[in-house]
C-alpha cells in the first residue's frame, strides 16, 4: 500500500485513490454509487438530445434553401405563401441593423455601470444599482416591449418603429453587458492600478488607459454574447416592430423585417406550401448568425490578457 503523499490530487475532478483498499464498501453502497454515476451520465445525455435534435431539424428542413444564392440577395417582396423563391436579405438586414443600434446604446451604459460598480461603488447606492441590474436581468422581454410601448407610443404618441425595438432590446442587453464587464474588471490585477496610482496617474485615466484596455477582449466577449441573446428575441418585436416583406432600412419610420418576425409571420403555414420551408430556412439563418456571434465571442476571450 502506498502512503498518501502531498501529490494527492487536489483539483475538482477528485478521483478516488484506487490503490487505497480498506476492505471495500458494502454491496448496497456500491450499488447506489453506480446508480448515481449512471444517472449523471444519463442526465447529460438527456440535456444534449434536444440541442442536437433542434439543430438537425433546422439544418435538414432549411438547409437546401439557404444554399441558394437568392436567399442572400432577394427579399420576400411579391412572394406569396404559395410561391417558391425570394430570400431573407430584408430580414437579415433588419436584424443586423437593430442589433447594431441596440449595442451602440447599451454598451456605453453597461460598461460605465460596471466601471461604477467595480471601481467607484461602495455603500448603499452601489448595492441598489447591483440589485437593480439583477432585476433588469429578470425582466421578461415582453414586459420590456410593453414598457417601451407604454412610454413612446401610448404616452408620447409616436408610431411603432424600429428604433423603439432597439430601445426595448437595450433594456435586455444592458444587464448582460454589466455583469460580464463587471467580472472582467474584477479580474484585472490590483498591482496594475497601484502602479498607475504610484506614477501619479489620476483615477479616471487609470481606468481609461489601464483597467479597461486590460479587460478589453473580455468585454468584447460579453458584448457579443449579449448581442447574440437580443438578436434572437421575438416578443418585443411582436409589439413594437411590425413585419414587412420589403427591404426597409429606416429605423425611424415604417415597418421593418427581422428574422424572428419573418419566422413568426409564416409559422402557421401548411407543411405542403413553399412558405413552410422558408420558415425553417429563416430559423437556420438566425441560428447560424447567433452561433457565429457566440463563436466570435469565445474567440475574443482567447485573446484575454487577464
Amino acid at each position: 500500500m502506498t502512503a498518501i503523499t502531498n501529490d494527492f490530487p487536489r483539483d475538482h475532478s477528485l478521483a478516488e485513490p484506487r490503490d487505497l483498499d480498506l476492505g471495500g464498501k458494502s454491496g448496497g453502497r456500491a450499488l447506489k454509487n453506480s446508480i448515481a454515476t449512471f444517472v449523471m451520465w444519463a442526465a447529460f445525455a438527456i440535456a444534449v438530445i434536444p440541442l442536437v435534435w433542434i439543430l438537425v431539424t433546422v439544418a435538414v428542413k432549411g438547409g437546401h434553401l439557404i444554399l441558394d444564392s437568392t436567399w442572400w440577395t432577394n427579399s420576400q417582396q411579391g412572394v406569396t405563401a404559395r410561391r417558391e423563391g425570394g430570400g431573407a436579405v430584408h430580414a437579415i438586414q433588419g436584424t443586423l441593423i437593430q442589433g447594431l443600434v441596440t449595442a451602440l446604446i447599451s454598451v456605453p451604459i453597461g460598461v460605465l455601470t460596471a466601471v461604477y460598480l467595480v471601481e467607484y461603488g461602495r455603500g448603499r447606492f452601489a448595492r441598489t444599482v447591483s440589485f437593480m441590474v439583477d432585476i433588469l436581468t429578470g425582466v421578461p422581454s415582453i414586459v420590456a416591449g410593453l414598457f417601451i410601448y407604454a412610454v413612446f407610443v401610448n404616452a408620447f404618441g409616436f408610431q411603432r418603429s424600429g428604433i423603439f425595438v432597439c430601445f426595448a432590446l437595450t433594456l435586455l442587453m444592458i444587464p448582460v453587458v454589466v455583469r460580464s464587464t463587471e467580472e472582467m474588471l474584477k479580474l484585472v490585477p490590483n498591482e496594475l492600478r497601484e502602479a498607475a496610482y504610484a506614477l501619479g496617474v489620476p483615477k479616471w485615466k487609470t481606468i481609461f488607459s489601464v483597467v479597461l484596455p486590460t479587460a478589453f477582449s473580455g468585454i468584447i466577449t460579453g458584448v457579443l454574447l449579449g448581442l447574440a441573446r437580443v438578436m434572437g428575441e421575438t416578443a418585443p418585436l411582436l409589439i413594437l416592430g411590425p413585419y414587412t416583406k420589403a427591404i426597409a432600412t429606416d429605423l425611424f419610420g415604417g415597418n421593418m423585417a427581422t428574422l424572428p418576425t419573418m419566422i413568426n409571420q409564416d409559422r402557421d403555414q401548411a407543411v405542403t406550401l413553399p412558405a413552410y420551408d422558408r420558415i425553417w430556412a429563416a430559423a437556420l439563418t438566425l441560428i447560424l448568425l447567433i452561433l457565429l456571434l457566440n463563436l466570435l465571442g469565445r474567440l475574443a476571450s482567447r485573446f484575454s490578457k487577464v
Binding site: L112, T113, V115, Y120, V129, I207
Partner: peptide
C-alpha cells in the same frame, strides 16, 4: 467627469427599473 458618468450610468439602470414600474 468620468466618475460622474459612471455614477450616471448606474443611476440610469436604477431609473429604468423604477420607470418600468411607474409607467406600467
Amino acid at each position: 467627469l468620468f466618475g460622474g458618468a459612471a455614477i450616471g450610468a448606474g443611476a440610469i439602470v436604477v431609473g429604468l427599473v423604477t420607470l418600468i414600474g411607474v409607467f406600467l
